[in-house]
């Protein structure tokens, strides 16, 4: 399909140029790359593993002693390594959950929007009802369905909530598209439904969905940390930003670094992702042109 690649080059090329001019988004992207890289090569950085205990340095504050640069926890586990480990876990889970929720959401929303009428009404009513539940219920109930701490289950549980918004966005997008005259023009040309779907609808929905995808990732990271914080997510000795912050909060009075280190990492990660998402949204928004 040579014509669609030309079209997307135009779209993506334009967006990339605009993104490069957005200083905040560029910084966020660089920082994010750095964090992701650090999370990936974490085991190479330090002699410690995330679950190795160092009985010589229980709850030692940050310093250069014995390569515990950001201190240790009550069991002498290296906080830097554990935080990076949690970072990797968060990114992995969020990526997985975002992917699944995008997939379900796009299919559901597009199906509802394209069918219209009663089917659309019923499908969106279902989404509305789930929406009116505090999302935590669904996640909590789902996480308790299966053994706690299973990553796949956790990702599914997060996705089960995340797809709702995607479905709404995609449906609204599809409905707006259906009213646009260029689809009518394509029909008037005699284009078959399959051609209309692939050449006209899909390219016009992809942009907003991609952008929304980058905004959903930080939400998923937040969810995961939140569940781990409540003890419903990742289980010890596995480290996640959420359970690290929870453990740190218990030791706050005597060892504040135990909460500050993972909290800073989380805030930094969320900040970068949000700023980048906002930048992408602006870059793709045709009104900015």
């Amino acid at each position: 399909m040579d014509e669609s690649t030309i079209a997307s080059r135009g779209l993506w090329g334009d967006a990339l140029v605009r993104l490069r001019h957005d200083r905040a988004a560029s910084v966020a992207l660089a920082l994010l790359g750095f964090l992701a890289l650090a999370a990936l090569i974490a085991p190479l950085l330090s002699p410690w593993r995330y679950d190795s205990l160092d009985w010589q340095h229980l709850a030692s504050p940050p310093g250069i002693a014995d390569a515990h640069w950001l201190g240790t926890d009550r069991l002498g586990r290296d906080l830097l390594v554990r935080t990076l480990h949690g970072l990797r876990l968060s990114l992995l889970l969020a990526g997985l959950a975002s992917g699944v929720s995008l997939l379900i959401g796009v299919l559901w929303g597009a199906a509802a929007g394209l069918s219209g009428g009663r089917i659309d009404g019923a499908m969106m009513r279902f989404v509305d009802v789930l929406y009116s539940l505090p999302y935590l219920f669904v996640v909590i109930i789902l996480t308790t369905l299966f053994p706690r701490g299973s990553l796949a289950v956790l990702a599914l549980a997060l996705a089960a909530v995340g797809w709702l918004t995607t479905a709404r966005i995609v449906r609204a997008q599809t409905l707006a598209l259906k009213r646009r005259e260029f689809l009518e023009a394509a029909r008037a040309t005699g284009a078959a439904p399959a051609r209309i779907l692939w050449h006209h609808i899909v390219p016009n929905v992809v942009g907003p969905v991609v952008v929304y995808g980058t905004l959903i990732v930080p939400q998923m990271i937040l969810f995961e940390s939140f569940l781990s914080f409540l003890g419903l997510g990742v289980q010890e000795p596995q480290a996640s930003l959420g359970n690290l912050i929870y453990a740190g909060a218990q030791e706050m009075e005597s060892a504040p670094w135990m909460v500050l280190v993972p909290a800073t990492a989380l805030v930094l990660l969320l900040l970068c992702l949000n700023v980048l998402g906002d930048g992408l949204r602006d870059a793709f928004d045709p009104r900015e042109r």
Binding site: I6, A7, S8, G10, E181, A186, H200, N204
Partner: peptide, 12 residues
């Protein structure tokens, strides 16, 4: 403009 697909070039 509304009757032209925003993601296609004039030639397409």
């Amino acid at each position: 403009l509304g009757s032209l697909d925003p993601r296609m070039t004039v030639a397409e």
